[in-house]
Simulated assay, not measured.
Amino acid sequence: MKTKILILFIFAFQISHSQSIFGEDKVITKSMSERWELDDEDKNGTFKLTYYNPVYVLPTRWSNNPNELPQSENPENSFEDPENYNQIEAKFQLSLKTKLIQSFLFGHGDIWLGYTQLANWQVYNDPISRPFRELNYEPELIVNFPLNITLFGLDLRMAGFAFNHQSNGRDLPRSRSWNRLVFHAAFERDNFQMYLRPWIRIESSDKDDNPSIENYIGRLEATFIYNINKHSLLVIGKNAMDFDENRGSLEVNYLYSVKSNLRLHLQVFTGYGETLIDYNHKQTTIGLGVSFIDW
């Protein structure tokens, strides 16, 4: 498993290098149309790998409350003995997408395949052999429609939906997974972008690894991106939309360009569900590292 993850990391780095994004001092920022090929002049055909979610490496990520005894409302998925986890570990994320079908439905839609992998690695924890504490795999099939509508001073540039699966690929009691139908709408104006993603959980006929996960991780995600010169701010908020117990999370990412899109990356997270194994565990984490691409 470690070998596969390292291969993926090297692959992503080579793609970045081949596109020469490290070879220029100018910060490369892309419009929403360039990222999602919305306008005719930005169409790029099918089966070409591009980036999707943020790609970063945080060699240092600190938690105020490590989840040493993961629990679930399903007793089969609850730990009985605590793990000796360090407060400091490494964290990284890889994410790619490719267009499967271009301009279907009378020329007004695209179908994409996306894949994101998030890793939390106890690389400094020698007493327990430096394990990967958690690996999350997230494939999704995305149906996207370009739009060009002005609402409340913002340009609604695209909307659609996705079939999303997320799991950690582990056996009991570590197993966590869920499926969602995710809707999305994306707005843009100048250097600002906003993505709204409400979802509905698709219930499984099999046993539930993580009952009530939507009451912790949430039912809605809002993402805000702002770029100015060498500075970028990415804010991701999730909310359960439950007025009795208003749970969720907030993640703030600040990036500063060192050379083109090689950026220093500071990430602060607080709330529930930083990873699937932590879906009902509340913590605050701070990570420092580098980001490789524009998003």
Rank of each mutant, 00 (worst) to 15 (best):
residue 30 K to H: 15
residue 30 K to Y: 15
residue 31 S to T: 15
residue 32 M to T: 11
residue 33 S to Q: 14
residue 35 R to D: 02
residue 35 R to L: 00
residue 35 R to A: 00
residue 37 E to G: 07
residue 37 E to R: 11
residue 40 D to V: 04
residue 42 D to V: 02
residue 42 D to P: 06
residue 43 K to G: 08
residue 44 N to F: 01
residue 45 G to Q: 03
residue 45 G to F: 04
residue 45 G to P: 01
residue 46 T to G: 00
residue 46 T to Q: 11
residue 47 F to Y: 14
residue 47 F to C: 09
residue 47 F to W: 13
residue 51 Y to F: 14
residue 52 Y to P: 13
residue 52 Y to N: 15
residue 52 Y to R: 06
residue 53 N to R: 11
residue 53 N to P: 00
residue 54 P to A: 05
residue 56 Y to W: 02
residue 58 L to R: 01
residue 59 P to A: 02
residue 62 W to C: 06
residue 62 W to N: 06
residue 63 S to R: 06
residue 64 N to I: 07
residue 67 N to F: 04
residue 67 N to Q: 06
residue 68 E to A: 04
residue 70 P to D: 11
residue 71 Q to S: 15
residue 73 E to M: 10
residue 74 N to C: 08
residue 74 N to E: 07
residue 74 N to Y: 07
residue 77 N to M: 14
residue 79 F to S: 15
residue 80 E to S: 13
residue 81 D to A: 12
residue 81 D to W: 05
residue 81 D to K: 15
residue 84 N to R: 13
residue 84 N to W: 04
residue 84 N to G: 14
residue 87 Q to S: 13
residue 90 A to Q: 04
residue 91 K to N: 13
residue 91 K to S: 13
residue 92 F to Y: 08
residue 93 Q to C: 03
residue 94 L to S: 00
residue 94 L to W: 01
residue 96 L to W: 09
residue 98 T to L: 13
residue 101 I to A: 14
residue 102 Q to M: 01
residue 102 Q to K: 03
residue 105 L to R: 00
residue 108 H to D: 15
residue 112 W to C: 04
residue 112 W to F: 14
residue 113 L to V: 12
residue 114 G to W: 04
residue 116 T to I: 04
residue 116 T to C: 02
residue 118 L to C: 03
residue 119 A to S: 11
residue 120 N to Y: 04
residue 120 N to A: 02
